[in-house]
Design a protein around this nucleic acid. Structure first.
Lengths: 221, 221
DNA sequence: GTCTATAGAACGATAGAC
DNA sequence: GTCTATCGTTCTATAGAC
């Protein structure tokens, strides 16, 4: 999936979607202050005023792009959780099942061909280095509720663990996921050719194992 | 430790050090393209031309600042490794000892009072979202050799593990460290007050446990 | 070495023609 | 809705007085 580009979309919608697509790629690579409306307009094959017409401002445009990227991933996360619940019935999920629901959807999204392999990973990385106020707000809005849903699931799985331990280790699991995504492009260099950075699927699988065992080691039983 | 501010330093050196200190804080908070020489000059209580006089360009100044911050941390890492080797004698180190040598020095540095609690963590986060070519170069230069030293130690500890597994999981350990540092400021919000983000020491300790167990779970024995 | 002044380019935003 | 032209601002960089 890319930004909606139905057969029925008007010319205006197409322009809008091209703007969002360019915004995604440039923001991922250079951050908010590195993104210029001129470059967005040029890559979108439209004019400088277009971004303002469709979104009102640079900030509003970036925010719109972020929303459209985060939403489907979070939806998929909820679906994965639901699928796991149906599979295990009344029993609590395993830590690994829960963290898979958190991590796998990003892998699926990266694997989709509409984005360069690096773009989404870089985009995710941006959302936690960009200090702009509006990014903070977005973060809270999109991940606040989601975190509580995952926390509830973890509480069910680890009923005797301290709240503090669960929060800390979910935080570490999420941090390691984001860190791994952000660092992924460095892997090939780093490993002197021993690991292939192209293999996103392998990263995701290894990440799930790493995070699940790290998590379980960190909570008091 | 801060930037060298010996009693013997000349006025020029003091200006230079003020510039580096301002650069550190602004770069950490806003990245390369968000840093302006005007703001650096203002915060350093000097003039706009000063940065160019001392460093030649904005890029050179940021690079100099990064070098001066990374060097003492990497030195401390080598010392920690050496101390661990002396303690265990001929036996290989444990995974946890090795990862402690990687992680603890950053915690020590953050704890030092010359920087705001967030600055160094943000700075580290920057080095892996900033896409500029010169950051990539710095990364390779400063961490390339260090990684191989840690890999050698890990090979000694896990002689029957595949190279690929060791690289992958060291990569994941480093990624989780960087991710945790970068995300640290979000912890308080995220945990709804259950975890105190002020407690860097606790993060470091939990991170060591998380990463060590994640690492060991990921390598074939 | 420190500073002022300014060149020269790029920025976000907007007015108004079509 | 799309586009050109341009305003006012801000940027890095530099020249030259002290």
């Amino acid at each position: 999936m890319s930004y909606p580009s139905n057969i029925t979309s008007t010319r205006a919608e197409k322009t809008r979607n091209r703007l969002l697509k360019s915004t995604e790629s440039i923001f991922a690579n250079r951050g908010f202050s590195g993104l210029t409306l001129r470059e967005v307009a040029q890559r979108s094959q439209t004019n400088l005023a277009s971004a303002h017409y469709h979104f009102g401002s640079k900030e509003a445009m970036v925010l719109e792009m972020l929303k459209s990227r985060v939403k489907p991933i979070n939806q998929r996360r909820m679906e994965c959780l639901q699928e796991a619940r149906e599979k295990t019935g009344d029993k609590p999920l395993t830590t690994q099942q829960i963290l898979q629901a958190l991590i796998l959807p990003i892998g699926e999204e990266i694997a989709k061909s509409t984005h360069s392999r690096e773009t989404l990973a870089q985009l995710v990385a941006r959302t936690f280095t960009e200090p702009a106020r509006f990014i903070e707000k977005m973060h809270r809005k999109f991940f606040g509720d989601l975190c509580e849903i995952f926390m509830d699931e973890l509480r069910r799985t680890h009923p005797h663990s301290e709240e503090e331990d669960l929060y800390w280790n979910l935080h570490l699991a999420i941090s390691s996921m984001l860190g791994a995504l952000a660092q992924h492009r460095r892997l090939k260099d780093f490993s002197k050719g021993n690991c292939k950075e192209e293999d996103t699927q392998e990263m995701i699988e290894r990440l799930v194992v790493f995070a699940s065992h790290g998590f379980e080691a960190g909570i008091s039983k």
